[in-house]
Nucleic acid binder design. Sequence first.
DNA 1: TATGAATGAGACTTCATTCAT
DNA 2: GATGAATGAAGTCTCATTCAT
Lengths: 192, 192, 192, 192
Amino acid sequence: MKNTKELIMEAAIKEISEKGYLGATMDGIAVKAGVAKGTLYYHFNNKEDLFNYIIKEGMNLVKNDIEEAVANEKNIIDKFEKLCYMQLKIIYDNKDFFKVIMSQLWGIEIRQTELRDVVKDYISYIEKYVKEAMDEKVINVDDTHLIAYAVFGIMTSVTVFELLNDKEINSIEDAEKIINYILNGIGLKKQI
Amino acid sequence: MKNTKELIMEAAIKEISEKGYLGATMDGIAVKAGVAKGTLYYHFNNKEDLFNYIIKEGMNLVKNDIEEAVANEKNIIDKFEKLCYMQLKIIYDNKDFFKVIMSQLWGIEIRQTELRDVVKDYISYIEKYVKEAMDEKVINVDDTHLIAYAVFGIMTSVTVFELLNDKEINSIEDAEKIINYILNGIGLKKQI
Amino acid sequence: MKNTKELIMEAAIKEISEKGYLGATMDGIAVKAGVAKGTLYYHFNNKEDLFNYIIKEGMNLVKNDIEEAVANEKNIIDKFEKLCYMQLKIIYDNKDFFKVIMSQLWGIEIRQTELRDVVKDYISYIEKYVKEAMDEKVINVDDTHLIAYAVFGIMTSVTVFELLNDKEINSIEDAEKIINYILNGIGLKKQI
Amino acid sequence: MKNTKELIMEAAIKEISEKGYLGATMDGIAVKAGVAKGTLYYHFNNKEDLFNYIIKEGMNLVKNDIEEAVANEKNIIDKFEKLCYMQLKIIYDNKDFFKVIMSQLWGIEIRQTELRDVVKDYISYIEKYVKEAMDEKVINVDDTHLIAYAVFGIMTSVTVFELLNDKEINSIEDAEKIINYILNGIGLKKQI
DNA sequence: TATGAATGAGACTTCATTCAT
DNA sequence: GATGAATGAAGTCTCATTCAT
């Protein structure tokens, strides 16, 4: 059985994904979590704290999931493919969380600059694999930094896609199409 | 000399790009525009009207700019390249406007679903060229819809890049790198 | 006719004198002033600002009134008597204001240390006259600082008196009794 | 070793002296007492009960201390001097408690009118000695009531003094100066 | 056309109090 | 005796909107 803090986190992700950080109300979160408003403040200092907690906690889960899956792969090509696959899968499984991330990326508020640091961290993580692949000569790009962002951009476009088309693209074929596109773009050739 | 309505529009774009739609205040916009708060209500019915006006007006300018530039190109390859180039250029030139777009894309409020229609329209416009290129056999993809979104995603990743790195990538070389990546991904071969 | 800001000030003094700073509510002040709650925030940044404004403005009025009255007296004895008389009169005329001062003197909050600075200033002002009187040999005390505080204490005791006895002591005889007591205490001898 | 209820009382006096009755929180008191919040409610019905208990208990201790000391004196002059001395001493020894009293004297809440009754009681007690001294012709005043309040006012001014000057006046000389001033004011002549 | 004082609904937050353990 | 998670009433404050000038 879930404890109160977890209930609140899930409710907050749902609420913020729907209304954005400012549009989300503590009342709304409380109702969604099935607790009294005061309870939110028993577990978190304030709205911003709750937000930051969600982001950090959420990103940690994402990273751990990917790290674990990628670790099982042997060569860099499979690793990179797995990385893409896992990221797509995680976006599918946590659409609300990613909507929170994407909607809060823009702007000059402190919570947003902090959020950006978390995302930056994550993209560095992607770049690490891009570099590795280039070192092993299986791909050929001249700006790993830029490429890492492009990979991230394609990924997020999936969320945009779903948002704009009101339909889900969670079949394996769709995932493969996207991954193919990414791999093509960086000239990754499968070694036969 | 700019008229009052234009001053307000520019101020609103700046304010909303910094704070988001909800974080932006009519007070803040009035100050940035150098007019009294009441004046905003003389020119627009309310905050949402002002927002919608900005989006529609802004997107029209973007489309016209692209259409005009692309029209001058003869073959589909050049057209597609020009499309990419123009979109990057416009994003560079109107960063604040694109931040508004990106930050408001997510969520279930009416203004957001309306905004999404505008963006959907724009992506359809990209897809038109993808299809055209495929019909002419210069590229080979099996899901033009998905590809159009990926192209859009790469574009937006540029904005993310700048946001996260606090530096501008507005040199021609950077643009070319990105465009190359996009073209590679769809297997576009320059005809010699 | 009084302007809105004055209405708010008077209402705030009344409300705070009755309930203390924390017990006073912005709602209560708004009702007493006959304006909407938002109007308070149009004229003052927040509750603390409103409080500080009242204290500073109020003390200035008090000082000006005293200064003016004392200036008309020729010798130091008359001046000192006038000072006492004026202070009593002002306390009578502005009981609510002095209740605010007295109730907020104690405690470690910032607004309270700021208030204390204002009061300290005022007591220094009393001490100035004590010193002057000692220099002219009409009184004989060995610690003007302490005496100034004692004078202030007697004055405030008047407020305590009224508070505790639910009756007013605003007759001239009462005032003279108190003044006499003060003068006796410092050994001031009327020069015949 | 102190029992829990005593720990709570001391913590409450400290907390209320710092923040006032309304500013003091049950949480803050619990932390200062080193007990859980619920424990406060095991020992007291509610915040107001805790407050009233402190006031009554505290004032009883004060009165007993004074009564005991004064009883040892033979003639009225010594008694009166002792009374003043004891009161100053008690104020010095229980500054926090007196800050609570002084800060809560003003206002129209029930707890405040109850507190005033306790203080009124105490001042009557002073007046008793003023009357006695007058009956014995060692002092000469025409309004014992008013004088009792003035004496109380001078006493409290000591607390104000310390508060405003951030320094303690607990030397015997200081005490004597103040007592002298009081006695002078009422024309008490030491009988040789 | 433009202004800015005034409004009030609704948000965040605090905190005395309860109660199952 | 003692605890601390949970509650919700009530407070401060924000801000889109109105309207007389």
